[in-house]
Every structure is written in C-alpha cells, then in structure tokens.
C-alpha cells in the first residue's frame, strides 16, 4: 500500500546551515503522527518542505505516491494543507475572517462559500460575530481557530498541524482535539502534528518521532509514550520532565 506521506532521505538547509538531515519516514493514510522535540530542531522546517514552502531541500517527498517537485503545486495544495505555528503570520492583516475562509474556495473555483464559511466557523468554535473581524481584533486563540478553519476549507486529505493548540485554553483545546479526532475518523484524514505537549500526542496520535538537531532520534508507538518505555535518553528525559508536572 502506498503511504500517505513518504519522506526518503530528506535534507533541508538555509544557506550554509543544515536544518533537517537525512530524514526518512512513512506515514499511512488515516494515521496521526506526532512530531516532538527540541525547539529549533527543524520540525516546522520539515512541514514547510512537505507543503512546498522550504527553498532548498534534497531527497524524496511524495504524497499518496505522487512525487512533489520543488515548486508550489496546486494539485498538492488541495491535497495537503498546513496550519502554521504563528497564526498572525499566516493570516493577512487586512483580510477579514470571512475573506480568509472564502479565499481558498475562490482560488479552487468551489461554490457555496455563503454556507460553508459559517458552518466551518461553528465547527471550530468561532462565534458568528467574528465573521467580519480582522486578525488584530481577535484574541490569540481565536486567530488560531481561524487558521485551523482555513486549512480545513478545501477538505484536504493531509493536514500538517504546527502547534495547533498551544495558544488555546485547555477547554478550547479539548474542543479542537475532539474535532480533529472526529474528522480523522469520518474522513480518514492523515495528520502530522507538531507539539511540545506530550499528553496531546498521547490523546491524538498513533506514533511519534522525537527530533533533535535536525535528526529523528527515535520513532515509537504512542503506547511506548504512555507506558514510559521509549528508549533514547533524550526521549526519556522529555517524558520524565512532562510526568513530573502532572
């Protein structure tokens, strides 16, 4: 069976600086894959390479068996969407919530924005009053939900989520995590979820990879995370520090 996401020897660099080195992963359709690790270890960069936003990479990236080229490709954007770590950066400052959510439909020639926009807002827990607001008129967590809603507008089959809930209070986080879980069950979506929050991985993911300095140091089943049987010293340190906090 072809993987939903297949990465073979992927390396990414910015100028002279290598940021991701020789990374290989196979992620099955319908799987939720957690990506955790040190701040600055290359997690966001890897997601950007998969979406076609990293300038300089080598190796092989394919989605459902189709190899991705070096440039942005519209076929891939309907297939694979990304929710960025900084919602401020991914939303246009002069674009209302309504415009941000309708735009992907317009670009891909899909009708029905009038009903689809409010429905998606409701699914992501956004009050209808926010529909004509600008990003700076929303709180951090509200902006994040707009970014998630926007990524879902095209019904992609792959969703790359970069810290999607770290700006949300835990009750809203619970709503979003439940929504992501439901979408995945109903539509067989495939996720890569970047987070620093191991309990979030435990709730949503099937497997996880731990990154450090551009490399994956361990790939494990989420059962190993729950039972504290991961093996790499850095993974064990992360788990120990997270456990102490409960």
């Amino acid at each position: 069976m072809t993987s939903a996401i297949s990465l073979r020897g992927v390396s990414v660099s910015y100028g002279e600086t290598p940021v991701v080195e020789d990374l290989s992963l196979e992620i099955a359709e319908g799987e939720c894959f957690g990506l955790v690790g040190e701040s600055g270890s290359g997690k966001s960069t890897l997601l950007r390479a998969i979406t076609g936003l990293a300038p300089d990479w080598t190796g092989g990236i394919s989605l459902f068996g189709q190899a991705r080229g070096k440039s942005i490709d519209r076929r891939f954007s309907a297939l694979c969407q990304m929710v960025f770590q900084d919602p401020y950066g991914s939303l246009h400052p002069r674009q209302t919530v309504d415009a941000a959510l309708s735009e992907p439909l317009t670009i891909h020639g899909i009708a029905g924005a009038d009903t689809k926009v409010p429905a998606m807002m409701a699914a992501c827990g956004l009050d209808p009053r926010f529909r004509f607001r600008l990003p700076h008129q929303l709180s951090g967590g509200q902006r994040q939900r707009v970014a998630i809603a926007r990524a879902l507008m095209l019904s992609p089959r792959i969703l790359l989520l970069d810290e999607p809930t770290s700006a949300l209070d835990v009750s809203v986080q619970a709503e979003i995590l439940n929504l992501l879980k439901r979408l995945r069950r109903e539509q067989k979506l495939t996720y890569i979820l970047v987070t620093h929050d191991l309990p979030v991985v435990s709730f949503l993911c099937d497997r996880l990879a731990v990154m450090r300095q551009g490399r994956v140091v361990e790939v494990a089943d989420v059962a190993a995370l729950r039972a504290n049987t991961m093996t790499h010293p850095y993974s064990r340190e992360m788990v120990a520090r997270s456990e102490r906090r409960v």
Partner: peptide
C-alpha cells in the same frame, strides 16, 4: 479538560 500523558479517553 487537560489530557494526560497516559491518556486513553476517546473524547475529552
């Protein structure tokens, strides 16, 4: 609503 590291709830 806080998930736990040994989380097994199907829904939060």
């Amino acid at each position: 609503a806080v998930p736990r590291i040994d989380e097994t709830r199907e829904e939060l």
